[in-house]
Design a binder for these strands. Sequence first.
DNA 1: TTGTACGCGTTATCAC
DNA 2: GTGATAACGCGTACAA
Lengths: 347, 347
Amino acid sequence: MTTMKEIAERTGVSVSSVSLVLNGRDAGRVKPSIAKKVRDVADALGYKPNPLARSLRTSRTRILGFVSEEIATTPFAGGIILGAQDAASAAGYMMITVNVDGLTDEPEEIAALKRYGVDGFLYAKMSNRITDVPEGLAEYPTVLVDATDRAGRVPSVTPDEVGIGYDATKRLIDAGCTRIAYVGCSEPMVAQRLRFEGYRRALEESGLPFDDRLTTNVMFHRPAQDAVDRLIGEQRPDGVFCWNDARALYVYQAAMKLDLTVGEDLSVVGVDNHRLIAETLVPELTTVELPHYEMGYWATRKVISMIEDRVPSADELPHTTAPLPPLDGPVETRVRCTLIDKDSVAR
Amino acid sequence: MTTMKEIAERTGVSVSSVSLVLNGRDAGRVKPSIAKKVRDVADALGYKPNPLARSLRTSRTRILGFVSEEIATTPFAGGIILGAQDAASAAGYMMITVNVDGLTDEPEEIAALKRYGVDGFLYAKMSNRITDVPEGLAEYPTVLVDATDRAGRVPSVTPDEVGIGYDATKRLIDAGCTRIAYVGCSEPMVAQRLRFEGYRRALEESGLPFDDRLTTNVMFHRPAQDAVDRLIGEQRPDGVFCWNDARALYVYQAAMKLDLTVGEDLSVVGVDNHRLIAETLVPELTTVELPHYEMGYWATRKVISMIEDRVPSADELPHTTAPLPPLDGPVETRVRCTLIDKDSVAR
DNA sequence: TTGTACGCGTTATCAC
DNA sequence: GTGATAACGCGTACAA
């Protein structure tokens, strides 16, 4: 590891000047010729600042703490971590990831992260929950991912749930469906209410009547399958919007039993929660993709902008799959989801 | 953050004495009464050493780098991260997790981790691959997770693949099956060969003939389903060992078409890769569980023991789900897998 | 038994 | 414009 001291010796200037140059604070303070020399030597020696020493002085570590409750356990959202990591890496930050559902306890883990000097926190829940932010995080730049702060103070990023319901339903309407069912989730989640709202809004906008016999909320296993069987069998919808891909699978099974072909007799759109299903088991399912990667990316850029107290210019924000929402928007940011068209919707 | 300096002032002794006491090096060097006083004050003030400052001095950070290629992307193995994190946390370490399949490039990420002063590396691949360890890791304590070093130098931990095939097949034999099929993976992976070997070994040991018409190796989608349909339809096995749960699902579909009931006419065991399937879609599937958590845990303890150059005593290693293999065993460590009995195997 | 002094690599301050 | 010098918090050799 080459140090500033070495560069100073090699260049014949003082460490202070080297520091100024290498941190870009040399405008009008260090002679350009010297600055260039310093930079050349630094390049030649492959100088990289020692983050530890820098941190000791600045009490900034360029490390972010990523605290999550179930992320690493559930398959849903490696994408969040991935997006967060990419954003961190692009901005010269590192991420320490910590799970708080295993043996560990949350306050202790947060305290440990603080001791390591993290500059800020990402706090990720799963499935868009309303949550209380742990008090330990209050004094730090913090952003919630896939969750919103009950108190409405900490910035958060969540999927545009209403948009999900609206887009999925609209897609079915555009395909000519008129009896569109909704197979929802019987747990009282925010997303449930909002997706349902999007569903109804799309119906209304298109002049289709809402019929609550066409909706059912279920969980898993046998009871879920039975409820879906009943819905499809008795109501014969020509389109179904499903809370997620697992529930879409129940629709597939129900259709199979009734000798209906999905994509012909019945169109289906489901939210892609589990990856596996749309990738492997039912590749023809039309899905709405949750913006996990984008949320992770956005949240990380946001927390960095809070730490550095500035909004990065557009060209500092490299490519992601979709355009990101502005970093200086309202406290609750929602990210639009993508509909991936496949054969489960009739054309 | 209270510092040693503050404690020294409060106590009226020098910082060095405080340092000696708080690092347990005060035996016969600091007066016990003073030592006690220092400890009391430290407790009262809630003193925690500043890891940064300590690191600058000792060049030990108690940070581990976790480098993985697809972990966060695939749902397969959040368990690895979880186990690694638990082990790290229990030993007072932190983990910086880095993905090298996104936008980032591996050598650069590894270099960055080094700059942050990580003490050692976990290098995790997926699905038990033979791999070349990046040269940047050579000089650091490093352990491979779910992969083995082609050169055979870096310690690694993998699932006991032969045991998987053996246990699954044995379970079917014990249930009275005599025509046991194997639905494998047509990619040439280590695990494929080894699980197949375990399958054959169990057959042989029980005096059952091996019949290669009872085995098929497939990937996904339609071709896979067709191959499985054919196998089940033409050969009518009474037991099937499946490479993973997704393939087990194909067996379920095939059985359904043939009006066979899994658990009665046909027993099925599959390796649990995707969690979702055994948890939600086919809860009655008997599975062999991959020891992801245990591998992460073991690898982390191992790399820490390399860093600290000592093998922790048994009571320093808290509970995990299963007893861990010894830390000072051979270079390639294999972890036994667990069979979870469910109704898909006849009794 | 205790305290002083120094080093780790960087940044900030203030003379020059 | 430039360069000493102090400070960040800790650990440790060495002097007292």
